[in-house]
């Protein structure tokens, strides 16, 4: 029988670390290259910049991880983020309230809009068993249109000062918004690895029928996974507003693809059932560091885009081999 000494959670953490070692090395490799090619790369200011820049993508990607783990995909996060931002922007610019009330109201509105969009994605795709690719593509259009409708295509601005301050606050050079996103990532890690819910999400991604026959409400678990992704989009909207002090209905175009890229580079399988948010965190870092470092190197926009594409493909190829070796 099994060796009785295995301290399981520690072991699991260790294993997840080893699994992510490859991508960690890739990140390290990028950092080394950029450090040599630009004197500014490793400056405190630039590190602050990178952390700020990956925040929104990280939040969206962590939410996306839940959906991809169950074998789904959420193409609507960029649009939902814009819709949530516009609604929250309308809320936060309402006349006749105090700042605290307005900020609270905006948070509730943004998170609520995001979660409802995610909930709809989940209910529709799970109830009818439809591919989430199509349902969330529909939601991408619905949310974008709704955002434009609500805002009349106008950028909303003039937010309470306290809200703006939160968006640009630093603690020891680390942006508060990044710390918030990191805490969210750790909570997601905890949920996925230490709770029944997380365990069953992995199970659904691997073998949905086995989980259903074991008596678990697969439908609701899927709905919750999509709701989490929507909630993350709402959360990203709040962070977006705090950082830029505007709410634009055309924000977040194409953000879903960056989020998916972070998740996949982080080693989560598009087929579901395998992956981790720690990988997603590293994936978001790779994308952020790459964008930042290539600008610092003075590469043209077009080359930069090409290199980012190459890195995504190489990451997935490497992951393919990693999965193969860990399987045998």
């Amino acid at each position: 029988m099994a060796s009785p000494t295995t301290a399981t959670p520690k072991l699991a953490a260790l294993r997840s670390l080893i699994n992510n070692a490859g991508i960690g090395l890739a990140l390290l490799f990028l950092i080394v290259i950029f450090s040599f090619s630009s004197e500014y790369f490793l400056t405190a200011n630039n590190i602050t910049n990178i952390l700020t820049q990956i925040t929104i993508n990280l939040i969206l990607a962590v939410g996306m991880t839940f959906v991809i783990l169950i074998g789904g995909i959420d193409l609507s996060v960029g649009s939902v983020m814009a819709f949530a931002a516009v609604v929250a922007g309308k809320a936060i610019t309402l006349p006749g309230f105090g700042d605290t009330e307005l900020i609270l109201l905006a948070c509730v509105a943004g998170l609520g809009v995001g979660m409802i969009c995610g909930l709809l994605n989940g209910v529709i795709s799970a109830y009818w068993g439809l591919p989430s690719f199509i349902i969330t593509l529909g939601m991408l259009n619905i949310a974008r249109g709704a955002g434009l409708q609500v805002s009349n295509a106008e950028t909303i601005y003039a937010f309470p000062l306290a809200f703006e301050e939160f968006g640009s606050m630093l603690i020891g050079g680390v942006p508060v918004v990044f710390i918030v996103a990191l805490v969210m990532t750790l909570i997601a890690w905890f949920v996925l690895n230490r709770t029944v819910f997380g365990r069953l999400l992995y199970g659904i991604g691997n073998n949905e029928e086995a989980v259903r026959l074991a008596g678990h409400p697969v439908f609701w678990y899927k709905v919750i996974a999509f709701s989490i992704s929507g909630l993350a989009a709402g959360f990203a909207a709040i962070i977006y507003m705090a950082r830029l002090n505007i709410a634009s209905p055309i924000a977040g175009i194409g953000f879903e693809l960056n989020a998916i890229a972070a998740v996949i580079i982080g080693g989560t399988s598009l087929a579901g059932g395998r992956g981790s948010v720690i990988g997603t965190l590293l994936g978001a870092f790779i994308i952020g560091v790459l964008a930042n470092g290539l600008i610092l190197m003075g590469l043209s926009d077009f080359l930069r885009q090409m290199i980012t594409g190459v890195v995504i493909i190489v990451a997935v190829i490497l992951d393919h081999y990693r999965a193969k070796y860990s399987a045998s």
Binding site: N49, Q53, I56, R243, I246, A291, N292, I295
Partner: peptide, 11 residues
Amino acid sequence: ETEEANQVFST
């Protein structure tokens, strides 16, 4: 785009 301009310009 605002967000992208923010990132690109910071760098």
